[in-house]
Design a protein around this nucleic acid. Structure first.
Lengths: 338, 338
DNA sequence: TTGTACGCGTTATCAC
DNA sequence: GTGATAACGCGTACAA
């Protein structure tokens, strides 16, 4: 496990390390022939400059860090693919860590990344993350950070978001147009900005169509299949079945779907369902789930490009928030039978 | 973005850098009071030793690398969670990269990891990877590598695998016991060791029960939904419907399922289905898919522990192959109606 | 118990 | 056009 170093190459060629270094860094104060010779023997010796040493010297690493809350759901993996796509071409490496929805892990991860001298960070906050002081400081110091999906208003930096309000509004309106009147929203923790926006969309769609919402219309379920199952079962037990449910994400909707099926209830006959944050799943379940599709890979690409721009601009940049468009894929689960 | 260094702390406390270093590395040649003072002021100054410098010096990084072919399917993310679980506790960081099923990317990733001086590597080979010379060399040099899932016989190192043969055999036998006689196997690229083993299981289950297999019984479909769809549609077009299909993975099975439904065929009435490499998906589709479950997170944990052992054993280790157990989850898609 | 000095592998800044 | 050398931040053998 002995790495070939610049010295080994220098020794072999009877020249100084600086010459080798120059050959690799393509400065013009080197004779073409020497350069070619060096590059050739270096290749032969399987030498490549040690990025660790380079990082130490340059105080940056040509690496960027990505910290996401989880990657059980396909959402974040798909975003990461977009991120990698951009950075791979530019010769950056992408380090990925997951916080497992824990604030402490998130901080650990970010600090680890920082210590590794990543040149920038792409971040999606965990559920637990309330205190963003640390990030505020980082940003103030000019450290490039791009937030996506789970963002915080307190942080003044590039953000890539989805218009949750708008699409929650459309999704709800779709149900209203189908003729459903008693609609419930399964949401998740109110502390998340996206869930707040989706709730707003749900409410305002009702307002626009002069439909009333009562206390029980918005239920804090969660993002998991089990959350959808649990809340659905409660409603069934209480005989409080709505006409339709707009769920905060597909997983939750699928949970509700499973429970409805278990009790022999028809979808959409008895209860119609709409999901959100489309994953491949939506079209696989039966009945296929109407859902709001987010452009996951595109989110990743956009975040990556913003970060790249920020890194290259060396401090001078105007924080912008890019809002990406989605679409409502209408499928069986919500279409009212004639 | 100025890092606090050991010098800053030394200056502040009017002592030498080595004293600071000692305080952090808990050698006993330091007075307790000085140590406490140093640690306190260090914390106050937000100093933490620079891991990059440490890596350069120690020639290792307290990081381990994970390279997987993809993480679109939930399989690899789940494995990674197991890996992280183990290493997080031990104070290692886990760097993740994906090869996107490309040999070139895989090599790039591995070399990047190597250059980053990761202390070890957990690896699952891409489809394309035939040439494992590079890994052979790494292993020969004593570099810790653990392979999982997509392994190569040519590499003599720790491996975590699943008994594909056994479970393919069981899955096939299950179909036979249900009374299906004309069974087809949708497989994937023969170059993958796991697909070879699953084919063997499929064949031997037939042999045991004295059922014949002809040319068309084993079809090279692929691992994606689209692969299952395509091959299923071909069979439907040719009017060559089998009684049952044993698919190389759930995605492929789900593709077949979608196509069967599209043509109004009943599952399992017309064609029964069994999948493999269970993801959460199997129980979500309708009809729920009978499938062989692999202990994904457990695979990750096991690989991590093996790697840890190898790293700590400093070269002296006997390569072992751990075969993990699974189970066949029988669901609607394969159970013959009475 | 503490401080000095070297080296890890680079690149940049000087000389020559 | 090339070579020597100082840094980057740290750990440690050795000296004090």
């Amino acid at each position: 496990m002995k790495h070939v170093t610049i010295k080994d190459v220098a020794k072999k060629l009877n020249c100084s390390v600086s010459t080798i270094s120059r050959a690799f860094n393509d400065k013009y104060d080197i004779r073409k022939e020497t350069r070619d010779l060096i590059l050739a023997t270096a290749k032969e010796m399987e030498y490549s400059p040690n990025p660790i040493a380079k990082s130490l010297l340059k105080q940056c690493s040509n690496q960027i860090g990505v910290v996401v809350p989880e990657f059980i759901n396909p959402f974040f993996p798909e975003v990461i693919i977009g991120i990698q796509e951009v950075f791979f071409k530019k010769g950056y490496q992408v380090l990925i860590m997951q916080s497992n929805e824990s604030f402490d892990n998130e901080m650990e991860n970010v600090k680890a990344m920082e210590n590794n001298m990543v040149d920038g960070l792409i971040l999606s906050l965990s559920f637990e993350t309330q205190n963003v002081e640390y990030y505020e400081n980082l940003i103030k110091q000019g450290f490039p950070i791009v937030l996506f999906n789970r963002v915080s208003n307190k942080l003044n930096t590039h953000k890539v978001v989805f218009d949750d309000y708008k699409w929650a509004f459309f999704a709800t309106e779709h149900l209203i147009y189908q003729g459903y009147k008693n609609i419930i929203h399964f949401t998740t923790s109110h502390s998340l900005s996206f869930s707040q926006n989706r709730i707003k969309g749900f409410i305002n769609a009702h307002k626009k169509h002069k439909l009333k919402i009562d206390e029980g219309s918005i239920i804090e379920a969660g993002l998991l299949i089990s959350d959808g199952e649990r809340e659905m079962e409660k409603l069934i037990a209480l005989h409080k079945l709505p006409d339709a449910i707009f769920c905060v994400n597909d997983m939750c909707a699928i949970g509700a779907m499973k429970m409805l099926k278990k009790y022999g209830l028809k979808i959409p006959g008895d209860v119609a369902l709409v999901g959100f944050t489309e994953t491949k799943l939506a079209e696989l379940v039966d009945p296929a789930l109407t859902s709001v599709a987010q452009p996951t890979t595109e989110i990743g690409r956009t975040a990556a490009l913003l970060l790249l721009e920020q890194i290259e601009s060396k401090g001078l940049f105007v924080p912008q928030t890019v809002t990406l468009n989605g679409r409502l894929n209408v499928r069986e689960s919500s279409v009212k039978a004639k």
